[in-house]
Design a protein around this nucleic acid. Structure first.
Lengths: 189, 189
DNA sequence: GTCTATAATCGGATAGAC
DNA sequence: GTCTATCCGATTATAGAC
């Protein structure tokens, strides 16, 4: 690859990384292209050599982060407990590292166009598939339901914990969501 | 109460109602004071006779909606199943009626100032307290955890269902969250 | 208290030099 | 490909008439 193309690809990657970080922390609307490009080490004008619009970057940023996080979570040595403790951690709540877009941007995405919601839907589907093999107490359709509930406890738990202003309550909430669950209306004995 | 004051109070109420509706559907940033006041049947200029800033209205709108929804949910005849089915319904997902700010605005709130997050925290605490008496399979600290997990399944489930672009998947998700849960690491027999 | 008009600012997107 | 400069539209908030 010629030096120019490699350089352009690197610039693009830096923009996407900055976008993923800043969108997750402040929301799409509150991050200007100016601030974004400064974080990526360039100026405003260079943006449109890489993307047609800010909205296009939003999709790209969500997908890139999902790919990277998905790769980490697919480590075969990772147990469900590890997975829950890593995701539902104070570090994640404080915006250090992963910054899962599904949790940090749920309502932001829900209010935007179909294309972006499709991207979110794909990422969510992938997340549920990733959880499925960890649902060892069930199989078939019940396993799918368990995986979806676990996904909601993780994503929803993190989203709410971030909205809460009370650190103790947030930690209590995260802890409650770390406990694996099964349906209660079954006959156990 | 003199007619003038009653009239002003009514205007204020209409503004708060419009705000609750529009903020929930489109997000705080994407609703202009212009659009807001038009929905309330006035023009832009009249806004500041009622509120010092748009941010102040945000707090007011969340509190007002929470009070109204809380009152409905405190009906003593309402079972947990009724509660789950009402909240995790397609009507709610489509923005008809309740528009619970906890679900519709989670990440929006998380990205704003401490004062607004405090308001959200108070509302969330009230919601958990409301759920507690319905957690009949547990008591004490375990009951608090069960209530919080149920709150996460409701709020988080609704928030995610709204972000999803696939109606069938969203319905499947809501259905999964409607099943009451208990911890799985207990010994059942 | 509500209106119209306007100030002041900020945002995304484009043009053109290098 | 990246820069500086700029257009254009939208926004919050204020001023002043009624």
């Amino acid at each position: 690859m010629p030096w120019n193309e490699a350089h352009k690809e690197d610039s693009r990657r830096r923009i996407v990384e900055a976008a993923a970080r800043l969108f997750a922390l402040h929301g799409f609307d509150r991050v200007g292209i100016d601030q974004l490009m400064r974080e990526a080490g360039m100026t405003r004008g260079a943006f449109y050599a890489h993307f047609n619009s800010k909205a296009e970057l939003y999709r790209e940023a969500i997908l890139a982060t999902a790919r990277r996080n998905g790769q980490r979570l697919r480590e075969p040595s990772l147990s469900l407990t590890d997975l829950l403790e890593g995701y539902l951690s104070q570090a994640h709540r404080n915006g250090e590292g992963a910054n899962c877009p599904m949790a940090f941007l749920v309502t932001d995405v829900a209010q935007r166009d179909e294309q972006l919601r499709s991207t979110y839907t794909d990422v969510f589907r992938g997340f549920v598939e990733l959880l499925k093999p960890h649902m060892t107490q069930s199989e078939g359709p019940q396993q799918q339901d368990d995986a979806m509930r676990t996904a909601v406890l993780m994503i929803g738990g993190m989203a709410i914990a971030r909205a809460l202003n009370d650190d103790a309550l947030a930690e209590r909430l995260l802890q409650a969501c770390r406990q694996p669950q099964v349906a209660s209306d079954q006959e156990f004995c």
